[in-house]
Computed example of a mutant assay.
Amino acid sequence: MWAWRPCSVRAGLRGFAETYTIQQARYPAGEPEWQPVHTVYVPADRFTAGTVSAWGDQASSLVKAHLAGPGELAEVFGVPGGLAPAVHERVVRKLASEPVEDLRVDFEDGYGVRPGPVEDGHVEQAAEAVAALHAAGALPRRWGLRVKSFADGDPERSVRTLDGFVTGVVSRAGELPGGFVVTFPKVLMEAYLGQFAEVLARLESGLGTRLRFEMQVEAPQTLHFLRGDLPESLDGRLAAAHFGVFDYTAAIGLPPHEQRLDHPACDHARHVMQTAFAGTGVELSDGSLAASPACGRKGDVHTLWRRHAELVRHSLRHGYYQGWDMHPSHLVSRFAAVYAFHLARYDSYRERVSAWEEQREAGGGVMDEPATIRTLAAALRRADAALQ
């Protein structure tokens, strides 16, 4: 007769408690929190307190001129007729109430290299604009800046801009408003991440708030050091990883006409990012479309919207729920594609979750697994956040 040998067998479990504690800390796998559907990048020299409202006004004007009603929306974006009225109404309302969910004042590629005093001046102007937006209650829920890369060989410039911006906002607003994040680009060496995290730790000492950052994945070299324990090694300061399509595709030698988000090489890079950070709580974001309408004619605007919406849908299908928007016209196609994506399956997802909870058949021959139910529930929470 078999007899349980607890002492001898249990000896093989030495260290389990420590390992399990590490697992829980490294892979919290919690419910998805609110995540912006986009990040809007504005060059620092063009950023003012009126930028957010101006983007919303320009996007709304494009809708009024070139997307008059649900029927036209259905034709341009390929939205089923039954969904078109709800999508159109949400797009119009969103552009009027919250056109920008996440804002970055860009001191890197979109800004370029300027003499030191010139950049210092734009830092001050940007801090003043942020404080004015905060005072008016118009600062986006997420906001921050993109500094220059350490890979450019001048980390002092990057840190000076960050320090000046943060202290400038605090001195004017009396605090660092919630939702602040720093974008750290072109991370070619893993050591840069630790160095930047140390900069944030020193900078935050007098602020009374914790500073976090998002890294950009813009080079094939970066993929080699993406892994699940990376956020832990950075004391939890890594908030997100954003894919940079143009630097990445250039770095691997793709011809200019193939530098696009839906290229298979970009799919590979994004899948590596997903694999590395799955379960860690690090958010993922896709990149951008570097194009605007060729002119103001309806045909050109529709062409741009169709292409951008196609890329947004490609990202959504691959599990990337955030991307970059670089022009006011992108707001229209971004929100239209996102709303249509979530609304198209919302009711069926909810029915399957309800059937599981009530221990009844979902219908249609569907046999859901627990992992699928968790995914469906997460998708509903994500949709609720995006559709609010």
Rank of each mutant, 00 (worst) to 15 (best):
R270F: 09
G174H: 07
A74S: 15
T280P: 02
G81W: 10
R334V: 11
E33K: 11
V118K: 03
E175L: 09
V245M: 11
E258A: 12
V366R: 12
Y248G: 11
E283P: 05
V52D: 02
D57L: 10
A59V: 08
R212S: 10
P140Q: 09
V170G: 05
Y349Q: 13
G194E: 11
S149N: 07
D267E: 08
T280C: 01
Y20R: 00
D120P: 07
A96N: 08
R93Y: 02
L223Q: 01
G228P: 11
W305L: 03
Q359K: 14
I373D: 04
E214W: 12
L200M: 05
P328R: 13
V37L: 05
V245F: 10
F225Y: 08
D152M: 11
E358K: 10
S233D: 00
H302Q: 02
G323Y: 13
A340E: 12
L376K: 06
Q274M: 03
A54W: 05
L95T: 14
R90G: 14
G287H: 14
K148E: 14
W34I: 08
G299I: 09
Y339G: 08
A385R: 14
D368L: 06
T375F: 13
V79S: 10
G144S: 07
A269V: 05
S158E: 11
H224V: 15
R313F: 07
C295W: 09
P231G: 00
V40T: 10
H314A: 14
T39H: 11
G15H: 06
R334F: 13
D300F: 06
D120A: 07
S348G: 09
G281Q: 01
G287Q: 12
L331A: 15
A127V: 11
R210F: 02
L133S: 04
L193Q: 02
L380H: 10
S61N: 12
R172F: 09
R382Q: 05
A240I: 00
V366A: 07
G323S: 13
M273T: 05
S354E: 08
L162M: 11
E128H: 07
A65F: 06
P80G: 02
T303F: 03
A131Q: 15
G363Q: 06
R14F: 01
V52T: 08
L226E: 14
A25S: 07
V338M: 10
R260N: 07
L176W: 04
Q388R: 15
D267L: 09
V9Q: 13
G236K: 00
L211S: 06
A386M: 08
V169G: 03
A201E: 08
V147C: 15
K298N: 05
V199P: 06
R90Y: 12
L193K: 01
P140D: 06
W4Q: 07
V170L: 05
V366Y: 06
F196S: 09
Y320L: 01
F243L: 07
G365N: 03
L13Y: 04
A84Y: 13
V9G: 10
V332L: 01
G194K: 09
Q259A: 01
H88A: 15
L304S: 04
A129R: 02
A68Y: 04
V63K: 02
A269Y: 08
F150I: 02
T19G: 00
F77I: 06
Q24T: 01
E98Q: 12
E357F: 14
D152H: 12
P115A: 13
Q216H: 12
S333M: 14
D267I: 00
Y320T: 04
S288T: 10
R114Q: 07
H302D: 01
R212M: 06
D384H: 09
G206I: 03
P370L: 15
H308C: 15
F213D: 13
